[in-house]
């Protein structure tokens, strides 16, 4: 039936696709906070206040770096689960 747990073990193609999907999502966020918020959208975001500074400046000098750290840990954690689901963990 539909809810029967399906073993994904041995599905090498599925594992690689799941990995690539996760990489694409995380790199999209990576690009959005750095090239997006801090560079290409910097002029409009400069006019949006963020506490005592402007939003573009916050991303450029603080925010993007914090997001980078979070992205790597999210990748590592999510891959732990994907590795187990596809039974390729160490």
């Amino acid at each position: 039936m539909a809810d029967e747990p399906q073993s994904k073990a041995g599905d090498g193609v599925g594992y690689w696709k799941a990995n690539l999907r996760l990489i694409i999502i995380l790199l999209a966020i990576w690009a959005a906070v750095s090239y997006g918020a801090a560079i290409f959208l910097a002029n409009p975001l400069y006019n949006i206040p963020f506490f005592q500074i402007n939003l573009a400046f916050w991303f450029a000098h603080q925010g993007a770096m914090i997001v980078f750290v979070v992205l790597i840990f999210v990748y590592a954690k999510t891959m732990d689960k994907i590795d187990r689901d596809y039974d390729v963990h160490e």
Binding site: I23, L26, L27, W30, S34, A38, I39, A60, H61, A64, M65, F68, L71, I72, Y75, A76
Partner: peptide, 17 residues
Amino acid sequence: GTIYLLGWTGGYVLLAL
């Protein structure tokens, strides 16, 4: 100065992924 701040940290996301 963001060229150094983001330029010298953003590469680690690429390394990790």
